[in-house]
Structure formats: C-alpha cells, structure tokens
C-alpha cells in the first residue's frame, strides 16, 4: 500500500534469478511436503525485488518450516523455539537497511512463541512473517497444534484434543497488525501476489500460508485445492472489489456482523466491497470469522493493509532527535556530567 517496505534496503543492478537464491544445502523435508512449494515460490519471487542479496535475512524458530533459511542463499539465522520474532525485532530495529523475514509455523508462532508474535505485530517492526499453518506438530511427530480443530485425534490426544484453536488471522488483527493476509502453498500465483504486497508494506506483515503436512495431517486443506469445491468455498479478498464468488456473496448481517448469502439472493449494491485499508479493524476481523466453524467459506487474500509508522523508523527518529537536541554523545562530557569535585 505505502510501497515503502523496502525503500531503505539497497538495490542491486545485477539481474537475479531463482538460482541466485538457492543455497548449496540439500533440502530435507519429507517428500510431498508443502514447504517445497513455498520455498520454490519464495526463491522465484525474491529476484523480482531486485535487492542486494546480502541485505536479505531469513530468521526462523524451530519446526519443519524453520529449516527454511538453510535453503536460501541469503543471510540466515535458525534460532530457538518461538523466539524468531524477538531475534528478528532486534535485528530489524537496529538495521533498517535489511529485508528481514521470519519463517515460522503454527506451533512455533502461536504456542511457544505466541507472546513474541503479538508484540512484534503491535510494534509494527519491519518484518515479513510467513506463518506456515499445517494445523499439526510435524517435527515432534504429530501432536495436535494450537490451530488443530477441537477433537483432533493425535498421539498426545488419543481421545481428541480439548482446546479451541486459534484463528491466526483473528489473532493478528486483534494484536493491532497493520498487514494481515492468508494464502495457500499450492497456489503459487496467489502466494506471490500476497508476498509482493507484504514486502511493499513497511512494518510487520503477517502472511498465513495454509501448508499441507502429508505425513501427519494430510489433506487438511484439501477442500481449498479440490477443483470440484474450491471455487465454492474460497472467498477471495481483493481491495476495492465486491467480496463474492459465482455462488456466494458477503453482506452485512442484520446482527451487525457479516454473513455469507447466496449470490443470486442479493442485489450487487448489497455486496460488501473489500476495504483492506479501512483504519477500523472490525470488518477485517469479521471477515476472519466468516469461516467459523470451518471450511465453509474461507477468505483468502489480504484482510488488512493499513499504514502506520514502523518501529525501527520511530526508534531511529528518537536517536536523531536526541542527537539534534543535545549533540552527538561525548563520553568525557557524560562522565563529567554529574556533580564532580577535584582533589589535588
């Protein structure tokens, strides 16, 4: 929206290709994992940005998705469980010349690292957070995750999980996120279109990517990929466009929220026009709840994209202001600054 996401990151004049972003490391996810598709999509997207490769950093936590940085020929930091947003915050806040990405999963971001995620979002640190949501714990071999549906039968929940899942989009909007989107691993075109907007956004962009774990939670998002039904349940969000598919439309409900109705039951002027730039987050939040309980009408696209100063900018401004007000720091002057006395 503001198009300034990467304005401080130096550009290259060398033409880049996908190959430039492949590291020499063998990719080691399970055959058939959705992570391959996301990696390929990111590697083929990065050249489009035209950034100096050395100014790109991928930071991750722990989990299958968090191996991502090893496979990209940029700077990378594979950190510890849940803490990637915190580590990336320190990096991005002190280095506005870097394009900093956080690669995380539903367990990493929403369980152990939930606190760091919400605080990165509210601060609006200049980060692109890609949250791979496969609704299961993969690396620890198949326990339910904070996005698993209630009643999920797993090794740790043989009688079904009890806790209500997080909706990552609702959570992010509730945490004051300035950019929130959802996309799918298998739809490269859509994924890259969302990344394009996310990187152009200065501040934190949170992109939830539905990602298939074919070992522990196969076909979790099958309805969104099945040509028979996908057009029926996918609700595409495009700024300035009516939120409708061939068969369905989103309208304001009498209760004050939103509801999905049959497309042919309403006139065009009643269909909600998507406004991702709306400063009031309540409509975006309502959109994120459209799919409660699950997979009846799944909104895909950018829910919210509003402009607000990035944390590193504000921090740098305070430093500049302090230096302007009183001059650059002088150590000798600092030490002599209190009440001093001389002996001898």
């Amino acid at each position: 929206m503001n198009g300034k996401g990467l304005s401080l990151v130096p550009k290259t004049d060398v033409k880049q290709s996908l190959k430039d972003f492949k590291s020499d490391q063998e990719v080691r996810w399970c055959p058939g994992c959705g992570d391959y598709a996301i990696l390929a999509a990111v590697q083929s997207f990065l050249p489009e940005l035209g950034l100096k490769r050395e100014n790109i950093v991928f930071v991750s936590g722990i989990g299958c998705s968090s191996r991502f940085p090893y496979y990209l020929n940029t700077y990378g930091f594979h950190s510890i469980h849940g803490r990637a947003p915190a580590i990336a915050t320190g990096l991005a806040a002190s280095r506005p010349d870097l394009s900093v990405w956080v690669i995380t999963g539903d367990g990493d971001a929403l369980s152990i690292g939930g606190n760091h995620l919400i605080h990165a979002l509210r601060r609006n640190v200049n980060l692109n957070i890609l949250l791979f949501n496969n609704r299961i714990y993969g690396l620890t071999k198949g326990q339910y995750s904070p996005t698993s549906e209630v009643g999920k039968i797993t090794k740790s929940t043989p009688m079904g999980s009890l806790d209500k899942p997080f909706n990552p989009i609702s959570l992010a909007i509730g945490a004051e996120a300035s950019f929130v989107a959802r996309t799918i691993d298998s739809d490269r075109k859509h994924l890259q279109s969302v990344l394009r907007e996310a990187t152009a956004h200065r501040g934190t962009s949170l992109v939830e990517i539905y990602q298939n774990c074919n070992i522990f939670n196969d076909n979790a998002f099958e309805q969104l990929k099945d040509p028979e039904v996908r057009d029926d349940i996918t609700v595409r969000l495009e700024h300035g466009q009516p939120i409708a598919s061939a068969s369905k439309a989103v309208v304001r409900a009498a209760s004050g929220g939103l509801e999905v109705v049959a497309r042919d039951s309403v006139s065009d002027d009643r269909i909600l026009v998507h406004d991702a730039h709306n400063p009031d987050p309540s409509v975006a939040f309502a959109l994120s709840r459209l799919d409660e309980p699950a997979f009846e009408h799944v909104p895909i696209g950018i829910f919210r994209q509003v402009s607000r100063p990035a944390y590193d900018t504000l921090m740098a401004e305070q430093l500049d202001e302090a230096a302007t007000r009183t001059g650059a720091g002088d150590l000798s002057e600092l030490l002599l600054g209190g009440d001093t006395w001389r002996i001898g």
């Binding site: 915190a86 320190g90 305070q318 230096a323 007000r325 720091g329």
Partner: peptide, 29 residues
C-alpha cells in the same frame, strides 16, 4: 543516552529482551 546512538528496547519479556539483543548482535551491534 540515545544521542550516543544507543537503542534501548523494553521487550515483552526477559526472553525477548535477550533475543532482541542477540538479533542485534547478529547485525553487528
């Protein structure tokens, strides 16, 4: 003492405090 170019970050918790410091160190701080 921001005029010395010092960035102070009051984190959401102790873990984020040290994490951010380490992230900044990776970046050369």
């Amino acid at each position: 003492h921001k005029r010395f170019g010092i960035r102070t970050f009051q984190a959401e918790d102790e873990i984020a405090g040290v994490g951010a410091a380490l992230g900044a160190a990776f970046g050369g701080a």
